[in-house]
Design a protein around this nucleic acid. Sequence first.
RNA 1: GCCCGGGUGGCGGAAUGGCAGACGCAAGGGACUUAAAAUCCCUCGACCGUAAGGUCGUGCGGGUUCGACUCCCGCCCCGGGCACCA
Length: 842
Amino acid sequence: MKEFYPFEEIESKWQGYWDDQGLFATDVKSADNKYYCLMMFPYPSGTLHVGHGRNYIIGDAVARYKKMRGFRVLTPMGWDAFGLPAENAAIKTGTPPAESTFNNIAIMKSQLRAWGCCYDWDREIASCTPEYYKWTQWLFLKLYERGLAYKKEAAVNWDPVDQTVLANEQVMPDGTAERSGAKVEKKMLSQWFFKITDYAQRLLDDLDQLDGWPERVRSMQENWIGRSEGTRVEFTLVPRTDGQPDADSVIPCFTTRVDTIYGCTYMVLAPEYPGIADLVKGLPQEASVLEFVKEAGHLSAIERTTDGDKNGIFTGRYVTNPYNQEQIPLWIGDYVLVEYGTGAVMAVPAHDTRDWTFARKYDLPIRISIQDPEQSLDLATMDDAYTEDGIVVDSPPFSGMPNREAIPQMGRHAQEHGFGGPVIQYRLRDWLISRQRYWGAPIPMIYCEKCGMVPVPESDLPVLLPEDVEFKPSGESPLKSCASFMNVTCPKCGGPAHRESDTMDTFVDSSWYFFRYLSASDDTQAVDTDLCNQWLPVDQYIGGIEHAILHLMYARFFTKAMYDLGLINFTEPFANLFTQGMITKRSEKDGQLYKMSKSKGNVVSPEELIKSYGADTVRLYTLFIGPPEKEAEWNDAGVEGAYRFLRRLWRRIEQTHSLLLGSKELKPVVDEMETPERNLYRKLHESIQRITRDLDGDFHFNTAIAQIMELMNAVDDLGVTESSSPQARAVYRETMETLVLLISPFAPHIAEELWQELGHAPSILNAPWPTVNEAALHRDEIEMVLQVNGKVRGRILVGATTDAVGLEQEALANKQVQKWIEGKTVRKVIVVPGRLVNIAVS
RNA sequence: GCCCGGGUGGCGGAAUGGCAGACGCAAGGGACUUAAAAUCCCUCGACCGUAAGGUCGUGCGGGUUCGACUCCCGCCCCGGGCACCA
């Protein structure tokens, strides 16, 4: 054995060995004892930093641990390879996206290898290959057949920097684009959508099944779906005085507080409400209303919402409240959202703070219809709306009812009289999947002058991305100006036609890749139904919290849609989800903590660290840094500590190498041990117990590693040598071998090497995980803590079998204790066997 | 405003209602060395005390309990999600 820990040599040795052996090449024919361990596949951006590394190191440690526990582990890897960065780079440098993407994939693959992360590379997929996106397109067609993919003209989010539309999920709360950071604009465009709203209720309901998901993620999805129960109420337009008919005489609204409807004193439409121009045509208000609508349209969503200021204008029209036949004025207000509910709101200023503000500003009437049971409301003294529960008043025939009871009754009333009824509203919108960009899967649609919109026949898939395109910063998809791509014949009539030039959102690609791993090279079908049914749901999904809504919602939607298509027989893709915390680093400029990222300039790249300390050190430190689900601050000095530990482990085995090999035949026997080795033996098995528990629970690698370090400290304290007793040497050998096994998921290279040096055949991954010997845990004597009034005043060693009475006697007789209870009355003695005795005195 | 997290030494962090601060980092002192590196040993929450020992201490204020970092109530601060969603 080398005297000093030769990490460089052993790491390249074992990485080569794992490659040759196909360490995680998994035969999926049998799914006995299966464990599908999946890491979110990365976008091939070129280089990974140690922050990204956390994800793969955690995943690799889990996969290795589960393999040692005897599971048939499937752990594949692939590339979320379509995306804007590659295309933007192409515009800048002229390098085709395919070329740069595959270059990046090669780099990142070697980085993963250098980290010691092993995957079943035979299943590797890249979403940008025709072999993959053919099936993305096929799935699009299936969704289209079921009416789940449709095209419509809508006000959509336009990213002026990336020159494409975005889904709602890809716009941040402050109105900027999630990817580019640009201020998102609204544009009316004809776009492709997936009808995820059809699945809103199922996506919500099934969250309850996901008890292997962090509560946080579930609640984020719940918020995003935003279910709300309410009532639809149809108000009727009061006919115009000039006798002109209205296109639609009904204006429906959605409310969660139908109980307040007798307090409704006006109605408000969103500025974008369809048909406003007709409503006011020829009225004196026409010009000013149209001007107001135009103004509101110029303001972005943020500008409209920032200060809470509400602007509006009277239309000159009136509507009738169907509950009391009252005619109330119809307004337009910029605080009403056209995309939520019906785009019309019944305004109850007395019981809604927004309506209150608006009514006060424009001097509209306010009427109380819910009374505070505690103290009577008085409009003269109220300075805001009363939004609490109370008693319905002045609302015949519902007056006198508690308002919560009134809601269902009044809803039923609307239904019986045909002007509405209970409805459920969701915040979730349909998923906009069109992208006006090149580097994505083309949407397989053809537009024919005669036949209209025609889907590409399945036999013509894939619709290939052309390579002879020009990347110019024109703001238009290069596909549009590529004649060879655009011009086709209509599959229906054979006449001239053109292709859809939009490509799909890359989140479509990532919504089904975890099915594809099971049959990555199957060119006959998208997914292998039998294999998916056996191997999924994924047993452990590992990734970043940033995907809590986007990717995880879309993937759940796809799974349900694919279930409905009969492609799979389960409805949730990921049984257990683990979201690791971000790695942060203090900025040298301002001393603040930031997420590690290229744009913040605080990245730590693994290459240099691996060069000076080795991959095992980087892995060990990354796992030791803190609980993996929490954020953690990267600290270069801490890496040194991990390195020191591995060196120490190496040295210990190197220095006692012949002793260890020479003790092979010695077996630890509890009854023959002297106290020192007996204690180490117990500590060893306590460690196995604790580490196993830490890994089976929430992957608390940090405490598991701490335990390994403690065990190592205990080994050093015992200081076994050639002249030690046979039992001491036997315990020492077992401890060292077990230590190597225990550390192997975290630091696999050194573990493989030491395992071999200890006389075992590789790979250590095929060795079983250590088990606890209950006999080793046994204690004859236990240290008991003695407390007086909850304060520790002493400690004693007692026999493990001493009963409560005996413990109490021993405690009371103790000198230290006597000092504190002298002259006091003992009120109570609490004995917690195995732990402590507490004497309460006064 | 609503919904989730979180707040413990100089730092990262440990603690099934039962010894607060495991493990590691940093720091200080010492040994070895011509010297350095490496390694090893000791100290390391605050305060009082020569010491033995004692008092205080897990964001703040209450409560439950023999006993609370842990459970309950009310706040404060930090992070995240949702938000003019009717």
